[in-house]
Each structure stands twice: as structure tokens, then as C-alpha cells.
């Protein structure tokens, strides 16, 4: 199970997440920045829940009302051309 990939985009395994979380006593956000889990192409849409669960089970803390992983735009994969002002106002 340790070798199972959790974040598919950034290829982060369960073992890596557990190790980092224990070593640094990380919050969800810190774990994301340390491992890049949830920071790939899909923006965390696939692994967000799994990463949260790894954390709640390591820290033994119930999920809080605040979103564990911050959401930042763009929330969908975008090309730089589309982001760079090519979009027109309707």
C-alpha cells in the first residue's frame, strides 16, 4: 500500500505523504507544498479527498469547516495563451 500513488498528476505515493506528514508535523497546506500532491494538472480534483483523509488519520483530527487545501484560480487546466489575456469581454 505504501507504494500506491495517491496524487496521479504529480506521482506522489502514500508512503511519501505519510513520511513527510510525520517528519514535519505538517498541516494539509504544508503537506501539499512539501509533496506537490494536489498541485498537478487536475488541480487536486482527483486526490483532494484522499490527501485530506491521509492527514486526518495521521493527525487524528476531524475535518474542520475551513477547506484543508486552498483553491486558487484557474480551477481548470488552461493554456498560457488563453490565460494571457486572449479571452474577450462579452
Amino acid at each position: 500500500m505504501k507504494d500506491t500513488i495517491i496524487c496521479r498528476c504529480e506521482e506522489v505515493t502514500l508512503g511519501e505523504l505519510e513520511e513527510l506528514a510525520k517528519k514535519h508535523h505538517s498541516s494539509a497546506r504544508e503537506l501539499k507544498l512539501l509533496s506537490r500532491a494536489g498541485m498537478g494538472f487536475c488541480g487536486g480534483r482527483t486526490c483532494r479527498q484522499a490527501v485530506d483523509r491521509v492527514l486526518t488519520s495521521i493527525t487524528k483530527k476531524d475535518p474542520t469547516d475551513a477547506l484543508p487545501l486552498k483553491v486558487a484560480p484557474p480551477v481548470r487546466p488552461m493554456s498560457l495563451v488563453d490565460l494571457g489575456g486572449a479571452a474577450k469581454d462579452e
Binding site: 484557474p74 481548470r76 488552461m78 479571452a87
Partner: peptide, 18 residues
């Protein structure tokens, strides 16, 4: 991909149009 807040208005950003 984004919703931007202006005074009493919002701009909904898509790939092609806002």
C-alpha cells in the same frame, strides 16, 4: 476557471470569453 469580484458585479472567466 475563475469568478472575479468587482463592485456589485462579478466577472465569470472562461477560456474564450469573460
Amino acid at each position: 476557471h475563475h469568478i472575479e469580484t468587482l463592485d456589485n458585479q462579478f466577472v465569470v472567466h472562461t477560456k474564450k470569453e469573460n
